[in-house]
């Protein structure tokens, strides 16, 4: 019988090519323990750890200083992540909550915090004016519209589209014309020509609300002011305002006649 002597180099090469020993070298007890513990985990998960169906309420957010501290100096990313978390809060454990079930006071606080962390983001005001305002509860809806209004006052040039949407919601969905007029007037007040990007149609929203309220004379005064102050330069716009002025005058006469 020839016994070949295995050199150290060959041993090393064998180890490098096949660094693991055969399965037979594992004691049977270890294999049994491995299978049993794996089955135990599967069994435990299946029968004793059902997914929790309990809905978590939305709680008030921590202070903006705490959030800044937790963000490790990167508030923009924290604001973006918080926004996505808040947006998906109504979907918990596979259950879709209606906005009616959400705590709107806490929701408003969260949105305010997100704006404080990232003031240039339009996302919180978009969800406030287009998503969370889609509730039947007038109190909750007003909470969202008021948030948009307050935030508009801080940065009118970039936030006017959301207040324009809030004005429409207050007028058509909430049927609260005084509230709609307050928002529309605010847009018009902050739309100083040459200093703002707010378009003319947004400034004219107050006219239609005043018309709906029956305040024809006030609407006429505003149009007169716009025309004499040369706030409107577009010829079609001027023509439209003149027509509106005549319509309002006729309506005013008719209402006085009654």
């Amino acid at each position: 019988m020839v016994v070949r002597k295995v050199s150290d180099n060959e041993k090393e090469s064998e180890f490098m090519n096949n660094p693991q020993r055969s399965l037979r070298s594992v004691p049977r007890m270890v294999i049994i323990l491995l299978i049993a513990s794996f089955s135990g985990q599967m069994f435990w998960f299946q029968y004793f750890l059902p997914p929790s169906a309990q809905v978590q309420p939305l709680r008030s957010p921590p202070s903006v200083s705490t959030l800044r501290l937790l963000s490790l100096g990167d508030t923009i990313v924290t604001a973006k992540i918080l926004m996505l978390w808040l947006q998906s809060f109504d979907n918990q454990n596979g259950q879709f909550l209606s906005y009616q079930q959400l705590n709107y006071t806490a929701l408003r606080q969260w949105l305010e915090r997100i704006i404080q962390l990232d003031p240039r983001s339009q996302y919180p005001l978009l969800v406030a004016s287009h998503v969370y305002s889609n509730v039947t509860d007038p109190v909750k809806m007003t909470q969202m519209l008021e948030l948009v209004y307050e935030q508009f006052l801080l940065e009118p040039n970039s936030r006017w589209p959301w207040l324009a949407q809030a004005t429409l919601l207050a007028k058509h969905r909430l049927k609260n014309l005084p509230l709609a007029l307050k928002y529309a007037r605010s847009i018009a007040k902050h739309a100083t020509p040459g200093m703002t990007k707010i378009p003319t149609w947004a400034r004219e929203m107050q006219l239609f609300i005043l018309e709906d309220l029956g305040e024809f004379e006030q609407a006429q005064l505003i149009i007169g002011g716009m025309l004499t102050n040369e706030q409107v330069t577009d010829l079609n716009e001027i023509k439209f305002l003149n027509q509106k002025l005549q319509e309002l005058a006729a309506k005013s006469m008719a209402s006085e006649g009654k």
Partner: peptide
């Protein structure tokens, strides 16, 4: 896929962080 607006801004800030 879950953002409504500012998708690129959110994606870039998340990836960067």
């Amino acid at each position: 896929s879950i953002t409504l607006i500012e998708t690129q801004a959110i994606q870039s800030s998340w990836l960067a962080a």
